[in-house]
């Protein structure tokens, strides 16, 4: 395997964006990531992005994103209709082939134009599930209920995740959930969909994020402390919720094993958990004990740019390495209802 590292990361300040469209949000983020990489834009060998037509409410919505890139002369470029963490995976594979030595990866999306809870319903089996319109929060609530009933967690545990995430998000300029309430205060609030309260759910965020990858010597040349991708893998589970034990995440566990997590725990873990209950499920799947600093960025509960939030986890984990806060970090991304599909990326300093 070639050595590949994250050499730069940029994100917009997530929020509801009533004024700017996707391209206007994305363009400065791409520019910032490219400039921070130290690699001239036209020397970047591959570009790959993640976004979703149903978020935008338009077919071919990713096409306009090309306008943000300065793709002239024409560029080698691809797109996944997935969270951009999977775009990073495609780019990593391209570099492994030797077809590129560097790559720009970005994700973007606006969740605010539509009802994101309902939009995500269209991810479900079109014959048996989607016609019933179970929304994404209700499905996550079913999952949370299974977790609570399993005895592995309590509502107080959920609130502790929320309180910690809000505290951390307040210190992150990329996040926008800034209410620093304590656990008891949060537990006193009403349910949104029992057993989930509003603070158990990710906020509605618009934004974009970008990462630049570079191989071996190029990474060393442009970056003082590259965040090396030691392993990356992703796995999917059955779609039908009835076929899964929702209180566990075997695909996360398997992806971590394939990525080479092994028995040495990371110092930092950035987990893509849009619901508090999902963080607890992921922590168990990854065997993260109390010594691991989870989501110092505030996680998806601090800002949840759908289609970029997974890539942001990789960017944040890489930042913790590049800024010397950690020498080994884990990033995770998820897709689909109730953690159906999961990606694990293991990053290390030299």
């Amino acid at each position: 395997m070639r050595e590949v590292a994250v050499v730069s990361f940029a994100q917009s300040a997530a929020r509801r964006e009533p004024a700017r469209n996707e391209v206007e949000i994305l363009m400065p983020v791409v520019t910032q990531a490219v400039e921070a990489s130290g690699i001239p834009r036209h020397e970047i060998g591959f570009t790959c992005s993640g976004s979703c037509d149903y978020l935008a409410g338009q077919a071919f919505s990713f096409v306009s994103a090309v306008d943000a890139l300065g793709a002239w002369p024409p560029i080698v470029e691809s797109h996944v209709e997935m969270d951009a963490a999977w775009a990073l995976y495609e780019a990593w594979a391209k570099i492994q082939c030797g077809m590129a030595d560097s790559a720009l990866v970005f994700g973007f999306g606006k969740s605010s134009p539509g009802e994101i809870r309902d939009v995500l319903t269209l991810q479900l089996d079109p014959y048996y599930l989607a016609p019933l319109w179970p929304d994404t929060v209700s499905l996550a609530a079913i999952q949370a209920r299974v977790l609570l009933e399993s005895g592995k967690a309590s509502e107080r545990d959920l609130a502790e995740v929320a309180a910690r995430s809000r505290r951390d998000a307040a210190a992150n300029p990329g996040a926008h959930q800034r209410d620093p309430s304590g656990v008891d205060e949060l537990l006193a609030r009403d349910y949104l969909v029992s057993p989930l309260r509003v603070h158990d759910c990710a906020p509605i965020s618009d934004g974009a994020a970008a990462v630049v990858l570079a191989a071996g010597d190029l990474a060393r040349k442009v970056c003082d402390r590259p965040a090396w991708i030691r392993g990356i893998d992703h796995r999917i589970e059955p779609h039908a919720l009835g076929l899964r034990d929702l209180a566990t995440s075997p695909s996360t566990r398997l992806a971590a094993e394939k990525a080479g997590l092994g028995s040495v725990p990371p110092e930092v873990a950035e987990l893509h958990a849009p619901f508090t209950s999902q963080e607890l499920i992921l922590r168990e799947a990854l065997s993260l004990d109390a010594g691991v600093r989870v989501n110092p960025s505030g996680g998806a509960l601090g800002a949840n740019v759908v289609m970029a939030a997974g890539l942001v986890r990789i960017g944040e984990a890489a930042r913790s390495i590049r800024e010397g806060e950690a020498s080994r970090a884990l990033a995770h991304a998820t897709s689909g209802p109730c953690l159906q599909q999961n990606l694990v990326c293991l990053l290390e300093a030299d």
């Binding site: 004024a19 700017r20 469209n21 391209v23 206007e24 409410g57 134009p113 539509g114 009802e115």
Partner: peptide, 19 residues
């Protein structure tokens, strides 16, 4: 064939340039 009506509403943002 089964017909499953799908209806989603979006509020589009023109953006600063289109504005």
């Amino acid at each position: 064939t089964i017909i499953t009506p799908i209806s989603l509403e979006y509020e589009y943002t023109p953006g600063t340039a289109s504005t």
